Amino acid sequence: MADENKVINDSCDFCGCSAEIGTIITEGDDICEYELRGSAETVEKDSERYDSAARSVSDSVQIQHHDTRDGEELVRRVTLKFTCTAEKMIFQMRTGLV
C-alpha cells in the first residue's frame, strides 16, 4: 500500500517537458516530404545522401522525386513513404529533417 503515495515523474529529465506518446506517434503518419534546392550537382548529392539514410532505416521505403526548375536552381520535391511512423521518426532524427 505504500506505493499508492508514490509520485511518478513523466517529464523529461533534460528539459522538464512532458507529452503523451499518442501526440508524438500517430497511426498513419508514415510519409515524410521535403524539398531540396540548388545546383543540379548539389541537389543530386544531397538527394543521394537522404535516400541512402532512408534505405538504412527501411529496405521497404518508397522514394519519389519530382524535379522542376526555378530559374537556374533545380527544385526536387521528395516524398518518402515508410512502413510505419517510427521509421519516419528515426529517419528524421538521423538526418535532422524534423
Rank of each mutant, 00 (worst) to 15 (best):
M1C: 12
M1W: 09
A2H: 08
A2T: 12
D3V: 07
E4L: 12
E4K: 10
V7M: 14
V7D: 13
I8T: 12
N9R: 14
N9K: 13
S11K: 04
D13K: 02
D13G: 07
D13C: 03
F14T: 00
F14G: 00
F14Y: 08
C15R: 00
C15L: 02
G16D: 07
S18I: 09
S18M: 11
E20C: 11
I21V: 15
G22A: 10
T23R: 13
T23F: 07
I24E: 15
I24M: 14
I24R: 10
I25A: 03
T26K: 14
T26E: 15
T26F: 05
G28R: 03
G28K: 06
D29H: 13
D29T: 11
D29C: 13
D30Q: 10
D30Y: 00
I31S: 06
Y34A: 05
Y34L: 12
E35N: 01
L36P: 08
G38T: 05
E41P: 13
T42R: 15
T42L: 15
T42P: 14
V43E: 10
V43P: 14
V43S: 11
E44V: 13
K45Q: 12
D46N: 15
S47E: 05
E48W: 06
R49C: 02
R49G: 02
Y50K: 10
Y50D: 11
S52Q: 14
A53V: 05
A53R: 01
R55I: 06
S56Q: 11
V57K: 04
V57D: 03
S58K: 01
S58Y: 00
D59V: 06
D59L: 08
V61S: 00
Q64A: 09
Q64P: 04
Q64W: 06
Q64D: 10
H65M: 01
H65R: 07
D67C: 06
T68Q: 03
D70A: 09
D70F: 04
G71N: 09
G71E: 08
G71V: 11
G71W: 10
E72C: 06
E73I: 09
E73G: 07
L74V: 07
L74W: 01
L74N: 01
L74P: 04
L74S: 03
V75R: 04
R76T: 02
R76P: 03
R76D: 03
R77N: 09
R77F: 07
F82R: 00
F82L: 06
F82Q: 03
T83E: 15
T85I: 02
E87K: 01
E87M: 03
E87F: 00
K88R: 05
M89W: 01
M89C: 02
I90F: 09
Q92S: 06
Q92V: 04
M93R: 02
M93E: 09
R94H: 03
R94S: 03
T95F: 04
T95K: 06
G96Q: 12
G96L: 13
G96W: 09
L97W: 04
L97G: 02
V98A: 06
V98D: 10
